[in-house]
Design a binder for these strands. Structure first.
Length: 484
RNA sequence: GGCGGGUUGGCGGAGAGGUUACGCAGCGGAUUGCAAAUCCGUGAAGACCGGUUCGAUUCCGGUACCCGCCUCCA
């Protein structure tokens, strides 16, 4: 069996991964707060974890992996978005507006992450469906002396958990020293955080032993992971910015509520995304969503490839140059993968690279080498004809290897596809051009080539009058009319 | 102030204490009516200063610079 190694934030080391139960490997990823379109930074952990999910399924079997990614649908930003609509004159109730907003955002999220070729998790729990579990957990924490009620809030008592700060490598005293937080007067310690807070009448709320209110930010993940994966599970991840306070607080809650359990054994954090060397932010004007890129004609597969070019634990810079490179590479790859339908075997170099702490750049390098060995063979076959065997098996293995990274999947290939009917039409034109070339009527041949290019079809002449073409960046089938 | 990460060839980006990463771009060649595509070949590196070592870009220490988190944030 392939040995998987992962860098565990908790121990700060790369460790061999040993599942609690190989028959049910369990992982949890902190998902989005559903108040708006997913921005590009939201997509990075989704792609990283998709690669991990595919790897685990490959190694342990697809029925032996459980992947949970939550939707946070209770949050002040959601309330604000709904309130803004109400103030803009929307007649619906605030509850309806919130529901509509979260439903809509989840739909967007699914569409955008599907476009990146990310598999849907096995469970996508919504926070609002787990309020009773959160209330139970909070009550349990109070009973165990780790939380207290004050001024209508319930707060976690960080001093009651000596290991607090271990994940992020900081002590409570250090944090207080450098803190820029406003300290609520009812807190016993400045670092105590909210488990439950009161809701006024115009905000969403649920009845609880502490009055009508809503959960704090961190408790949902503790409650949902316990409900769906158990008190101990294998992998928990998210962006490095979640390391503190979110994950630190999750650990405190879960480990105090379930002192006999491990909670998450391995913590994985991806580094942040930059855009042209700078942090993506609205104020710098370099902020954009996944949908913005898709609408610009950058396919989800290209976006995925750009992500995979950088190891997940390094900051990743999104640049136009990388997009160009990724697109050119995928065009070539899809160019040879086209007609192959047989299934292959993922190359061991690829699986080994991914298993080595998700080393996707190395996996891509191995794919480049596979590609080159195939084109080299194809070249020889084309020139010397039957002296070499078919490369069908090699291509099938290449495609299967790429699919281990979530690339070259049929469902994200539409950006290069051409409808059969249109393909026949192009073939007709290309044959006419070949005939003109063979008659040495180069002005006609060049005219046809230029017109095809204008329609976004790139002609690639092969030896001996072989015909090949590719769908270019500005493909427009309407412009094919009247070429002949 | 506290915690953490980074600095590799023109660009992107990995691994490994001693042997070509890989990709893009460039250059030379093949092929081609001409392009494109494709194929073959090829130069180029590891912030700075010390230390360990037969040997370090790779390990250790320091310096400089950059970045992230500490506040909603993937």
């Amino acid at each position: 069996m392939v040995e998987i190694k992962l860098t565990n934030t908790r121990t700060r080391r790369k460790e061999a991964f040993v599942p609690i139960d190989p028959a049910d490997v369990r992982m949890y990823l902190c998902g989005p707060t559903v108040y708006d379109r997913a921005h590009l930074g939201n997509a990075r952990p989704v792609v990283v974890f998709d690669v991990l999910y595919r790897l685990l399924r490959h190694v342990y079997g697809s029925r032996h992996v459980t992947y949970v990614r939550n939707f946070t649908d209770v949050d002040d930003k959601i309330n604000a978005a709904a309130l803004a609509r109400k103030e803009a004159g929307d007649p619906r109730s605030l509850e309806d507006l919130i529901r509509a907003r979260t439903e809509e955002t989840i739909g967007w999220y699914h569409a955008d992450m599907d476009a990146l070729g990310a598999l849907r998790p096995d469970h996508e729990p919504r926070a609002t469906d787990y309020i009773p579990q959160m209330i139970d957990m909070i009550a349990d924490l109070i009973a165990k002396g780790h939380a207290y009620e004050a001024a209508g809030h319930v707060l976690f008592d960080v001093r009651s958990y000596p290991a607090y700060g271990q994940l992020s490598g900081r002590s409570v005293d250090d944090m207080i020293a450098g803190a820029r937080v406003e300290v609520a007067p009812f807190k016993r310690d400045p670092m105590d955080f909210v488990l439950w807070k009161p809701s006024s009448g115009d905000l969403p709320g649920w009845d609880s032993p502490w009055g009508r209110g809503r959960p704090g930010w961190h408790i949902e993940c503790s409650a949902m992971s316990a409900a769906l994966l158990g008190e101990s599970f294998d992998i928990h991840g998210g962006g490095i910015d979640l390391q503190f306070p979110h994950h630190e607080n999750e650990i405190a809650q879960s480990c105090c509520a379930h002192p006999q359990a491990d909670f998450a054994r391995v913590w994985l954090h991806n580094e942040m995304l930059q855009v042209e060397g700078k942090k993506m932010s609205k104020s710098l004007g370099n902020f954009f969503t996944v949908r913005d890129l898709l609408d610009q004609g950058i396919s989800g597969e290209v976006i995925r490839y750009v992500f995979l070019m950088t190891h997940y634990r390094k900051p990743m810079d999104w640049t136009a140059e990388k997009v160009r490179e990724a697109e050119a590479t995928l065009r070539r790859w899809r160019g040879i993968a086209g007609g192959v339908t047989q299934s292959g075997t993922a190359a061991s170099e690829i699986v080994t690279a991914i298993a080595d702490d998700l080393n996707t750049p190395e996996a891509l390098a191995a794919l480049h080498e596979m590609y080159r060995s195939i084109t080299r063979l194809e070249h020889r076959i084309a020139y010397y004809e039957d002296e070499f065997p078919s490369v069908g098996d090699e291509i099938a293995d290449f495609v299967t290897s790429a699919q281990a990274l979530g690339l070259l999947l049929p469902e994200i290939g539409e950006w290069l596809e051409i409808a059969d009917e249109v393909g026949e039409r192009i073939m007709e034109i290309a044959i006419a051009r070949r005939d003109a070339r063979q008659a040495r009527d180069f002005s006609t041949a060049d005219r046809i080539r230029a017109q095809l290019e204008a329609a976004g079809v790139l002609i690639k002449d092969g030896p001996g009058g072989a015909i090949a073409w590719e769908r270019g960046p500005n493909f427009d089938p309407d412009k094919l009319d009247g070429i002949l």
